[in-house]
């Protein structure tokens, strides 16, 4: 499965900088920060699905998945918005007759949203490694906590 932009939800502070950076670089935002009751935030962008439902439902074959890349042919698009409905994450958008989808800022070293994220919540990763990455990070945190002879919140009074 190709790379995609993921978010560490415990780090997102709902500042919307990723949306604005994407808008600046790509004319319209292809990442969306959903704020839940003012108490938590979830950034979502295209998951770069291996079997993209958006392409699968396209009646006019305007969306085609070839060589790990989704191609879009505006000539064949009827504007029916089935792709928008099919995307389980709500990240396919049809604007002005064009299906817009995150292309990970082709030509840039890292996507603009990842580069700009003030809290370091966004990162680029391959889905296969995602679970392992999280497990490694969590394990390192536990190691740090255990390995410290004077863990946080303990000080010998002078």
């Amino acid at each position: 499965m190709p790379e995609a932009v993921y978010a560490d939800l415990s780090r997102c502070i709902a500042c919307h900088a990723c949306e604005l950076a994407c808008e600046r670089e790509n004319e319209s935002a292809k990442i969306f920060v959903q704020v839940v009751r003012g108490l938590a935030a979830v950034p979502v962008s295209c998951r770069q699905c291996e079997t993209p439902l958006c392409a699968a439902v396209c009646p006019g074959e305007a969306l085609n998945y070839r060589d790990s890349r989704l191609e879009y042919d505006a000539e064949k698009c009827t504007g029916c918005r089935l792709c928008v409905l099919a995307c389980p994450f709500g990240t396919a958008e049809l604007r002005a007759g064009v299906v817009e989808r995150c292309d990970l800022c082709q030509g840039k070293e890292i996507p603009a949203c990842v580069a700009t994220c003030p809290s370091g919540a966004l990162f680029c990763a391959e889905a296969e490694n995602l679970g392992e990455d999280i497990r490694t990070r969590r394990a390192e945190r536990i190691k740090k906590a255990l390995g410290n002879p004077e863990p946080a919140g303990r000080r010998v009074n002078r």
């Binding site: 780090r11 502070i13 709902a14 500042c15 003030p118 809290s119 945190r141 740090k144 946080a152």
Partner: peptide, 30 residues
């Protein structure tokens, strides 16, 4: 988190090392 967003990354870095963060505010904020 809203007024000086890049400060968050240092606070989160501290948390990764196990820091204890206390926030006193009348509102619930990011």
């Amino acid at each position: 988190a809203e007024n000086h967003p890049p400060v968050s990354r240092q606070v989160l870095r501290a948390k990764e090392k196990g820091a204890f963060v206390i926030v006193a505010d009348p509102r619930i904020t990011p």
